[in-house]
Design a protein around this nucleic acid. Structure first.
Lengths: 122, 122
DNA sequence: TTATCGTATGAGCACTTGTTCATATGTTTG
DNA sequence: CAAACATATGAACAAGTGCTCATACGATAA
Protein backbone atom coordinates (compact mmCIF):
# COMPACT_ATOMS: atom_id res chain seq x y z
CA UNK A 1 0.00 0.00 0.00
CA UNK A 2 1.57 3.20 -1.14
CA UNK A 3 1.46 6.44 0.78
CA UNK A 4 1.23 9.54 -1.33
CA UNK A 5 3.51 12.37 -0.40
CA UNK A 6 1.60 15.27 1.10
CA UNK A 7 0.15 17.64 -1.44
CA UNK A 8 -1.23 21.13 -1.32
CA UNK A 9 -4.58 19.78 -2.41
CA UNK A 10 -7.28 20.78 0.06
CA UNK A 11 -10.25 18.62 -0.69
CA UNK A 12 -13.83 19.79 -0.32
CA UNK A 13 -14.15 23.35 0.89
CA UNK A 14 -14.06 23.41 4.71
CA UNK A 15 -10.79 22.59 6.41
CA UNK A 16 -11.04 23.09 10.17
CA UNK A 17 -13.53 20.36 10.92
CA UNK A 18 -11.74 17.91 8.69
CA UNK A 19 -8.40 18.46 10.38
CA UNK A 20 -9.96 17.77 13.75
CA UNK A 21 -11.57 14.61 12.45
CA UNK A 22 -8.33 13.42 10.92
CA UNK A 23 -6.61 13.85 14.27
CA UNK A 24 -9.21 11.73 16.05
CA UNK A 25 -9.07 9.06 13.36
CA UNK A 26 -5.29 8.83 13.52
CA UNK A 27 -5.50 8.44 17.28
CA UNK A 28 -7.96 5.55 17.26
CA UNK A 29 -6.63 3.76 14.19
CA UNK A 30 -4.56 0.69 15.12
CA UNK A 31 -0.94 0.58 14.05
CA UNK A 32 0.19 -0.55 10.63
CA UNK A 33 1.23 -3.99 11.83
CA UNK A 34 -1.96 -4.67 13.74
CA UNK A 35 -4.03 -3.65 10.73
CA UNK A 36 -2.13 -6.03 8.50
CA UNK A 37 -2.47 -8.86 10.99
CA UNK A 38 -6.19 -8.21 11.13
CA UNK A 39 -6.53 -8.20 7.35
CA UNK A 40 -4.41 -11.33 7.18
CA UNK A 41 -6.71 -13.06 9.65
CA UNK A 42 -9.85 -12.23 7.70
CA UNK A 43 -8.14 -13.28 4.49
CA UNK A 44 -7.88 -16.75 5.96
CA UNK A 45 -11.64 -16.84 6.49
CA UNK A 46 -12.17 -15.49 3.00
CA UNK A 47 -12.08 -18.82 1.22
CA UNK A 48 -14.96 -21.27 1.16
CA UNK A 49 -12.68 -24.29 1.31
CA UNK A 50 -11.12 -23.14 4.56
CA UNK A 51 -14.52 -22.21 5.96
CA UNK A 52 -15.79 -25.68 5.15
CA UNK A 53 -12.80 -27.19 6.88
CA UNK A 54 -13.55 -25.13 9.97
CA UNK A 55 -17.19 -26.21 9.93
CA UNK A 56 -16.10 -29.83 9.94
CA UNK A 57 -13.77 -29.14 12.85
CA UNK A 58 -16.65 -27.55 14.77
CA UNK A 59 -18.07 -31.05 15.03
CA UNK A 60 -15.02 -33.15 15.75
CA UNK A 61 -11.29 -33.65 15.64
CA UNK A 62 -10.64 -35.07 12.19
CA UNK A 63 -7.69 -36.51 10.29
CA UNK A 64 -6.62 -35.16 6.92
CA UNK A 65 -7.93 -37.98 4.76
CA UNK A 66 -11.35 -37.79 6.42
CA UNK A 67 -11.40 -34.07 5.78
CA UNK A 68 -10.55 -34.67 2.15
CA UNK A 69 -13.32 -37.22 1.82
CA UNK A 70 -15.87 -35.10 3.69
CA UNK A 71 -15.20 -32.14 1.43
CA UNK A 72 -14.72 -34.10 -1.78
CA UNK A 73 -11.26 -32.67 -2.25
CA UNK A 74 -7.74 -33.85 -2.89
CA UNK A 75 -5.64 -34.70 0.15
CA UNK A 76 -3.05 -32.30 -1.18
CA UNK A 77 -5.44 -29.39 -1.48
CA UNK A 78 -6.75 -29.96 2.03
CA UNK A 79 -3.24 -30.23 3.41
CA UNK A 80 -2.22 -26.95 1.81
CA UNK A 81 -5.19 -25.17 3.37
CA UNK A 82 -4.63 -26.78 6.77
CA UNK A 83 -1.13 -25.35 6.66
CA UNK A 84 -2.53 -21.85 6.23
CA UNK A 85 -5.06 -22.37 9.01
CA UNK A 86 -2.32 -23.64 11.30
CA UNK A 87 0.08 -20.81 10.49
CA UNK A 88 -2.64 -18.41 11.60
CA UNK A 89 -3.24 -20.44 14.76
CA UNK A 90 -6.84 -21.25 13.91
CA UNK A 91 -6.28 -24.99 14.10
CA UNK A 92 -3.84 -27.26 15.87
CA UNK A 93 -2.67 -30.73 14.97
CA UNK A 94 -1.85 -33.91 16.81
CA UNK A 95 -0.09 -36.94 15.41
CA UNK A 96 -1.53 -40.39 16.07
CA UNK A 97 0.33 -43.10 14.26
CA UNK A 98 0.29 -42.43 10.55
CA UNK A 99 -2.59 -39.99 10.82
CA UNK A 100 -2.57 -36.36 11.87
CA UNK A 101 -5.68 -35.06 13.58
CA UNK A 102 -6.69 -31.43 13.35
CA UNK A 103 -8.90 -29.47 15.69
CA UNK A 104 -9.80 -25.88 16.41
CA UNK A 105 -7.18 -24.14 18.46
CA UNK A 106 -9.37 -21.37 19.71
CA UNK A 107 -12.89 -20.41 20.64
CA UNK A 108 -12.50 -17.18 18.70
CA UNK A 109 -12.80 -19.12 15.47
CA UNK A 110 -16.41 -19.98 16.11
CA UNK A 111 -17.19 -16.50 17.41
CA UNK A 112 -15.83 -14.85 14.27
CA UNK A 113 -17.69 -17.14 11.92
CA UNK A 114 -20.88 -16.75 13.94
CA UNK A 115 -20.63 -12.98 13.57
CA UNK A 116 -20.14 -13.35 9.85
CA UNK A 117 -23.13 -15.65 9.55
CA UNK A 118 -25.33 -13.13 11.32
CA UNK A 119 -24.50 -10.55 8.69
CA UNK A 120 -24.91 -12.94 5.78
CA UNK A 121 -28.28 -14.18 7.01
CA UNK A 122 -29.43 -10.53 7.15
CA UNK B 1 -13.99 -25.45 -6.10
CA UNK B 2 -14.03 -28.84 -7.74
CA UNK B 3 -15.81 -31.87 -6.33
CA UNK B 4 -14.05 -35.13 -6.95
CA UNK B 5 -16.22 -37.95 -8.19
CA UNK B 6 -16.64 -40.66 -5.57
CA UNK B 7 -13.84 -43.14 -5.42
CA UNK B 8 -13.40 -46.54 -3.89
CA UNK B 9 -10.67 -45.16 -1.66
CA UNK B 10 -11.40 -45.85 1.98
CA UNK B 11 -9.09 -43.65 3.96
CA UNK B 12 -7.56 -44.62 7.27
CA UNK B 13 -8.59 -48.01 8.53
CA UNK B 14 -11.85 -47.72 10.47
CA UNK B 15 -14.98 -46.89 8.50
CA UNK B 16 -18.07 -47.01 10.71
CA UNK B 17 -17.21 -44.12 13.00
CA UNK B 18 -16.13 -41.95 10.10
CA UNK B 19 -19.36 -42.52 8.21
CA UNK B 20 -21.35 -41.43 11.24
CA UNK B 21 -19.22 -38.32 11.59
CA UNK B 22 -19.59 -37.45 7.93
CA UNK B 23 -23.36 -37.66 8.27
CA UNK B 24 -23.37 -35.24 11.20
CA UNK B 25 -21.04 -32.84 9.42
CA UNK B 26 -23.16 -32.80 6.28
CA UNK B 27 -26.22 -32.06 8.41
CA UNK B 28 -24.74 -29.04 10.18
CA UNK B 29 -22.75 -27.63 7.28
CA UNK B 30 -24.48 -24.61 5.72
CA UNK B 31 -25.46 -24.81 2.08
CA UNK B 32 -23.11 -24.07 -0.77
CA UNK B 33 -24.49 -20.60 -1.35
CA UNK B 34 -24.38 -19.55 2.28
CA UNK B 35 -20.78 -20.77 2.55
CA UNK B 36 -19.77 -18.72 -0.47
CA UNK B 37 -21.55 -15.64 0.84
CA UNK B 38 -19.73 -16.07 4.13
CA UNK B 39 -16.35 -16.43 2.44
CA UNK B 40 -17.15 -13.46 0.24
CA UNK B 41 -17.94 -11.37 3.30
CA UNK B 42 -14.66 -12.21 5.02
CA UNK B 43 -12.79 -11.59 1.79
CA UNK B 44 -13.99 -8.00 2.00
CA UNK B 45 -12.44 -7.66 5.45
CA UNK B 46 -9.27 -9.32 4.21
CA UNK B 47 -7.63 -6.18 2.89
CA UNK B 48 -5.90 -3.59 5.05
CA UNK B 49 -7.08 -0.69 2.90
CA UNK B 50 -10.71 -1.61 3.38
CA UNK B 51 -10.16 -2.21 7.09
CA UNK B 52 -8.60 1.23 7.40
CA UNK B 53 -11.58 2.74 5.61
CA UNK B 54 -13.91 1.04 8.07
CA UNK B 55 -11.88 2.30 11.02
CA UNK B 56 -12.29 5.85 9.75
CA UNK B 57 -16.03 5.31 9.37
CA UNK B 58 -16.20 4.07 12.96
CA UNK B 59 -15.50 7.67 13.95
CA UNK B 60 -17.61 9.65 11.54
CA UNK B 61 -19.47 9.93 8.29
CA UNK B 62 -16.81 10.98 5.77
CA UNK B 63 -16.70 12.06 2.15
CA UNK B 64 -14.49 10.33 -0.39
CA UNK B 65 -11.82 12.99 -0.69
CA UNK B 66 -11.41 13.16 3.08
CA UNK B 67 -11.04 9.41 3.18
CA UNK B 68 -8.39 9.60 0.50
CA UNK B 69 -6.50 12.25 2.42
CA UNK B 70 -6.84 10.47 5.76
CA UNK B 71 -5.44 7.27 4.30
CA UNK B 72 -2.87 8.88 2.02
CA UNK B 73 -4.36 7.22 -1.00
CA UNK B 74 -5.63 8.13 -4.43
CA UNK B 75 -9.28 9.13 -4.69
CA UNK B 76 -9.64 6.48 -7.35
CA UNK B 77 -8.27 3.71 -5.19
CA UNK B 78 -10.52 4.67 -2.30
CA UNK B 79 -13.54 4.88 -4.58
CA UNK B 80 -12.88 1.41 -5.95
CA UNK B 81 -12.73 -0.02 -2.45
CA UNK B 82 -15.83 1.86 -1.33
CA UNK B 83 -17.65 0.26 -4.20
CA UNK B 84 -16.75 -3.19 -2.89
CA UNK B 85 -17.73 -2.25 0.65
CA UNK B 86 -21.06 -0.93 -0.60
CA UNK B 87 -21.80 -3.94 -2.78
CA UNK B 88 -21.43 -6.07 0.33
CA UNK B 89 -23.68 -3.73 2.28
CA UNK B 90 -21.02 -2.81 4.81
CA UNK B 91 -21.28 0.91 4.09
CA UNK B 92 -23.95 3.20 2.72
CA UNK B 93 -23.61 6.50 0.90
CA UNK B 94 -25.45 9.79 0.84
CA UNK B 95 -25.03 12.57 -1.67
CA UNK B 96 -24.66 16.14 -0.47
CA UNK B 97 -23.99 18.54 -3.27
CA UNK B 98 -20.87 17.50 -5.10
CA UNK B 99 -19.68 15.28 -2.26
CA UNK B 100 -20.74 11.77 -1.36
CA UNK B 101 -20.62 10.84 2.30
CA UNK B 102 -20.07 7.27 3.39
CA UNK B 103 -20.99 5.66 6.69
CA UNK B 104 -21.32 2.21 8.19
CA UNK B 105 -24.55 0.52 7.21
CA UNK B 106 -24.58 -1.99 9.98
CA UNK B 107 -23.56 -2.65 13.57
CA UNK B 108 -22.29 -6.07 12.53
CA UNK B 109 -19.31 -4.45 10.89
CA UNK B 110 -17.89 -3.32 14.20
CA UNK B 111 -18.76 -6.61 15.89
CA UNK B 112 -16.92 -8.64 13.26
CA UNK B 113 -13.80 -6.49 13.38
CA UNK B 114 -13.84 -6.50 17.18
CA UNK B 115 -13.87 -10.30 17.15
CA UNK B 116 -10.96 -10.33 14.76
CA UNK B 117 -9.01 -7.92 16.89
CA UNK B 118 -9.47 -10.12 19.92
CA UNK B 119 -7.82 -12.98 18.11
CA UNK B 120 -5.00 -10.88 16.70
CA UNK B 121 -4.19 -9.34 20.06
CA UNK B 122 -3.86 -12.86 21.49
C1' DT C 1 -23.84 27.25 -21.66
C1' DT C 2 -19.07 26.24 -20.01
C1' DA C 3 -15.82 25.48 -16.32
C1' DT C 4 -14.72 23.30 -12.19
C1' DC C 5 -15.01 20.25 -8.41
C1' DG C 6 -16.04 15.64 -6.40
C1' DT C 7 -16.80 11.08 -7.51
C1' DA C 8 -17.25 6.72 -10.35
C1' DT C 9 -15.51 3.45 -13.58
C1' DG C 10 -13.08 0.76 -17.28
C1' DA C 11 -8.61 -0.93 -19.01
C1' DG C 12 -4.20 -2.53 -18.05
C1' DC C 13 -0.71 -4.49 -15.20
C1' DA C 14 1.91 -6.50 -11.32
C1' DC C 15 1.06 -9.37 -7.78
C1' DT C 16 -1.36 -12.88 -5.11
C1' DT C 17 -3.97 -17.18 -4.48
C1' DG C 18 -5.92 -22.03 -4.79
C1' DT C 19 -5.56 -26.04 -7.16
C1' DT C 20 -3.14 -30.02 -9.41
C1' DC C 21 0.70 -32.97 -10.08
C1' DA C 22 4.78 -35.04 -8.67
C1' DT C 23 7.48 -36.13 -5.02
C1' DA C 24 9.35 -36.02 -0.31
C1' DT C 25 8.77 -37.01 4.67
C1' DG C 26 7.25 -39.72 8.44
C1' DT C 27 5.08 -43.92 10.51
C1' DT C 28 3.79 -48.67 10.83
C1' DT C 29 3.96 -53.41 9.20
C1' DG C 30 5.94 -57.48 7.19
C1' DC D 1 15.53 -53.73 5.51
C1' DA D 2 11.41 -52.77 2.03
C1' DA D 3 6.61 -51.81 1.15
C1' DA D 4 2.42 -49.47 2.18
C1' DC D 5 -0.03 -45.76 4.06
C1' DA D 6 -0.94 -40.84 5.72
C1' DT D 7 0.61 -36.44 5.25
C1' DA D 8 3.51 -32.42 3.70
C1' DT D 9 5.52 -29.62 0.23
C1' DG D 10 7.47 -27.42 -4.05
C1' DA D 11 6.63 -26.10 -8.88
C1' DA D 12 3.53 -24.58 -12.25
C1' DC D 13 -0.55 -22.56 -13.93
C1' DA D 14 -5.16 -20.32 -14.23
C1' DA D 15 -7.97 -17.17 -11.93
C1' DG D 16 -8.59 -13.31 -8.99
C1' DT D 17 -7.14 -8.80 -6.72
C1' DG D 18 -5.72 -3.86 -5.90
C1' DC D 19 -3.57 -0.20 -7.74
C1' DT D 20 -2.75 3.50 -11.44
C1' DC D 21 -4.09 6.12 -15.26
C1' DA D 22 -7.31 8.12 -18.13
C1' DT D 23 -11.76 9.42 -18.60
C1' DA D 24 -16.76 9.71 -17.76
C1' DC D 25 -20.51 11.23 -14.81
C1' DG D 26 -22.97 14.45 -11.70
C1' DA D 27 -23.61 18.76 -9.29
C1' DT D 28 -22.65 23.52 -8.61
C1' DA D 29 -21.11 28.09 -9.95
C1' DA D 30 -19.92 31.68 -13.21
Amino acid sequence: MKIRETEELECCESEEVHEERLRIVREKMPGEEELCDLAELFKVFGDSTRIRILFVLFEAEVCVCDLAQALGMTQSAVSHQLRILKQNRLVKSRREGKSVFYSLSDGHVYAIIAQGLEHVEE
